[in-house]
Amino acid sequence: MKILVCISHVPDTTSKINFTENDSKFDSTGVQYVINPYDEFVLTRAMWFKEKQGATVTVVNVGNVGTEPTLRKALAIGADDAIRVNTEATDGFAVAKELAEVVKNGGYDLILAGKESIDYNGGMVPGMLAAILDYNFVNACIGLEVEGDKAIISREIDGGKEVLSSNLPLIIAGQKGIVEEKDLRIPNMRGIMMARKKPLTVLEPTTGEVTTSIVSFEKPAAKSACKMIDAENVDELINLLHNEAKVI
């Protein structure tokens, strides 16, 4: 089985979010970039298929050269090789188009992505990729088993879960549940050394077609101070929630 894991390169979850150039660009000064947490879950699942079922695992990112350390980290975790499509990722559709080229040329059986990137929270790339390729697709995946060319997938739905079955090829947008937190791997020294020698292929973009663009960013208005209520006076809280906030 050939697996492709789509890796989005995002600011670490603790990053301060600021903007520059008249609020038109994300300010990456001092920001640590990491593998998108959802992608880390699916990458870990891919490692399981590699170790238990002999799958090969390629990781891919659409981005400029600055994303290579993130791809190397994925290689250090255990992916076999990496592809970077050399273009600034600004629009989900453009990214999906580039990924579709990679998938067509590579003949992958299983394409794993995350449910969303935690920076722009688009939640669009995996679904668009599936629609472009007309591949089966499951979103918000919380469980995945593959036997031969058949997959059993669990997906989270509002207030429960749905179990689906599909043939390969298949595209998955995963989240926690596909593996657990404790299964996530931190690259060790040996992994990091090996990653340096693993192939990282740079491809030039093919399309450049965009459908959306960000004009500017804003930060939420400053919050007014929290009203403190005495622990002995919960009636006051109920009163405020009822008469002031009008939420109960």
Partner: peptide
């Protein structure tokens, strides 16, 4: 933005050659 809506929307967008924005 229910689970089904978020699942559908990118597919609808590609089907219609449309740009898509979530959230």
């Amino acid at each position: 933005s229910n689970s089904n809506g978020l699942y559908l929307a990118p597919l609808v967008a590609v089907n219609l050659n449309a740009g898509y924005t979530s959230n």
